[in-house]
Design a protein around this nucleic acid. Sequence first.
DNA 1: ACTTGACCTAAACTTAACTTTAGGTATTAC
DNA 2: GTAATACCTAAAGTTAAGTTTAGGTCAAGT
Lengths: 151, 151
Amino acid sequence: MTIGEVAERMNISISTIRFYDKEGLLLGLKRNKGGIRIFDQQDMEVLQLIECLKKSGMQIKDIKQFIKWCSLGDQTLQLRKEMFDKQKANIEQKIKELEHALSLIEYKCWYYQEALKDGNEKRVKQLTPEQMPSVIQEAYQQTHHLFVDKG
Amino acid sequence: MTIGEVAERMNISISTIRFYDKEGLLLGLKRNKGGIRIFDQQDMEVLQLIECLKKSGMQIKDIKQFIKWCSLGDQTLQLRKEMFDKQKANIEQKIKELEHALSLIEYKCWYYQEALKDGNEKRVKQLTPEQMPSVIQEAYQQTHHLFVDKG
DNA sequence: ACTTGACCTAAACTTAACTTTAGGTATTAC
DNA sequence: GTAATACCTAAAGTTAAGTTTAGGTCAAGT
């Protein structure tokens, strides 16, 4: 496959793929006699791995390091394991933070929904936790130290 | 409180706080006669809200927009609600992506742990899902289309 | 009086991850 | 044969979210 086909299939831009190649993330990528990149199934899989690791918050330079380690064989197994152990902890932490943020946002969604019923924030602002739906109450109790008077 | 005290308490750098102020995120922040910023409890709460929204992936310009809407009163309630509804969907999507990435990473952690027992990847590379621990099997089945031959 | 420390501003710099531009090659379509 | 396409490189530009720098004010301590 050519770069254009890969870009369309995977929904990544052509320039991004070339950028990854330049950065050394696509080790072993073949070219034809004219210098044009030819992608096979494995190259596609590397690209998918890159996208997944990026979504996990890993930086390009670390993905590059990992890919380089892969090419160096068994003596880098320990390093690769440590990298993933660390990344696992990173993701778990991120998920926790997002869940916490979600609590706040869910409270806010409910808050504004109530405020809109009245056209103003007076009533909802004065509600005590006991007067909130239990789902919101939980969100509120996790995050109410964050709430601003202004709403 | 002064900027230095706030920075230390909240573990944000002084320059970041000044940057937020310059960007208009700290509307209504007072100064003393010498021009020095004086923070009260409400300003701290706004800062906490900013940190939380940032962690949720919201951009500074959107946080700024929200804060501006707050200052415009009840006619912006609908807009504020829509912003949070949208942000709620964003976070839920992000959590899903992270959980998917976590599956891959958990598989990788297990993979390298097994590989290290042998000093190479030969055995672990050939295992079928039935031969994996069930937790890993689930992760594998969600993500095995991503795996590269090289490990 | 003078030095120190905490504050101030404006403006330049930084970093990551791309994207855009400018100029060139090679294959296919008419 | 020439025009349109899809590819190529190197280098400059972009954006977000800060950080750093340079130069200045002000209050407190010695």
